[in-house]
């Protein structure tokens, strides 16, 4: 079931990616992370990690829980200190820049809306910091609320909103900050499945409208593949593969990546004289153009089908 969903997502994504790319046009590396290492409580979380994100791009950071995705996002945002390596935004080294001067905004899973402010004041907060007049900033906030389909709810208290509406306010507030880089930390994981679908569409719509370079952390494969222009797969503090969703699906870098998407099978065997022979006792063989030696043959999930021997 999941495999089919992932495939569908990949097809949908190809169409959407084409639209996004036409908007973004030719792009340069907005964010460059070079050999980044991060330690927390003396344990290595990010290990010699390298990643590039292009201008206007939507990149998904995908990986299992505890692989360091959120830590990477927080170190880009300036909340987690860097041990070694470099983070460059628009060519500028931002390792030691405090979070409030970086121009990156994180939308957290728990939304972190300010309960002492109304919805409009929450959205207008980044503008208040910039010293924009109250009437102007509240007017702007209303515009951003319209973008996230919450117009007219500006005067409500945060506690009067549903989970989905709160997530929209968090998005609107992030957009109001006009960040150079928008970082989304599993933004939909606290929402139910129906809402999640709506929010994905909304985020993609906003990405098309604002063209903001976006990095989204997720552990939901379908979400990553359907939304992103490129996907970066993370395991144990390292990026193991970066590429378009189609590329990741068709040529996974290693067994872990392929295993993460599920369904693919591996057969251990040897190649001799252009013929791969399985060593699993089945005696099956395939013609290949490889040098002699031991190999693992990957059989993609979509070519496998259940049936009886004819």
């Amino acid at each position: 079931m999941e495999k089919t969903a992932i495939e569908k997502a990949a097809i949908e994504k190809t169409e959407k990616a084409a639209i996004t790319r036409s908007v973004s046009g030719d792009s340069y590396a907005k964010l460059i992370i070079d050999r980044l290492s991060v330690e927390l409580n003396r344990s290595v979380i990010l290990d010699d990690l390298t990643l590039q994100v292009k201008e206007h791009e939507f990149l998904s950071l995908l990986g299992p829980s505890g692989c360091g995705k959120s830590t990477l996002l927080k170190s880009i945002g300036g909340i987690v200190p860097v041990k070694s390596g470099a983070i460059r935004l628009d060519g500028e080294l931002i390792n030691d820049k405090p979070s409030y001067r970086r121009g990156t905004v994180i939308v957290f899973q728990d939304m972190r809306l300010f309960p002492n402010m109304s919805v409009a004041e929450n959205v207008a907060y980044p503008l208040r910091i910039k010293g924009i007049k109250k009437s102007d900033r509240l007017g702007k906030a209303e515009e951003y609320l319209e973008h996230v389909q919450l117009s007219g709810l500006g005067n409500r208290r945060i506690s009067q909103l549903s989970g989905g509406q709160q997530q929209r306010v968090a998005l609107a507030r992030a957009l109001a900050a006009e960040p150079k880089l928008l970082l989304l930390d599993e933004p939909f994981s606290s929402l139910d499945e129906n809402l999640r679908g709506d929010m994905r569409q909304l985020v993609k719509k906003l990405h098309r409208e604002f063209g903001m370079t976006t990095v989204m952390v997720t552990h939901d494969r379908q979400e990553a593949l359907s939304m992103a222009d490129r996907v970066a797969i993370m395991f144990s503090g390292k990026i193991v593969q970066t590429g378009t969703p189609e590329m990741i699906l068709s040529s996974p870098a290693d067994e872990r990546v392929s295993g993460y998407f599920g369904g693919n099978r591996y057969v251990h065997g040897i190649v001799k004289g252009g013929v791969f022979t399985a060593l699993d006792g089945s005696g099956q063989s395939w013609c290949v153009s490889l040098e002699d030696g031991e190999y693992d043959l990957m059989i993609r999930a979509e070519v496998l089908s259940s049936g009886t021997d004819s």
Binding site: I79, T104, V105, R173, A174
Partner: peptide, 25 residues
Amino acid sequence: SNLEEQAQILGAGPVRSFFDVSVPQ
């Protein structure tokens, strides 16, 4: 400190984020 952290991410300095967000709480 989550809300204060969020205020700083949105561009508020440490003192400002403390008075804007933490003090009311």
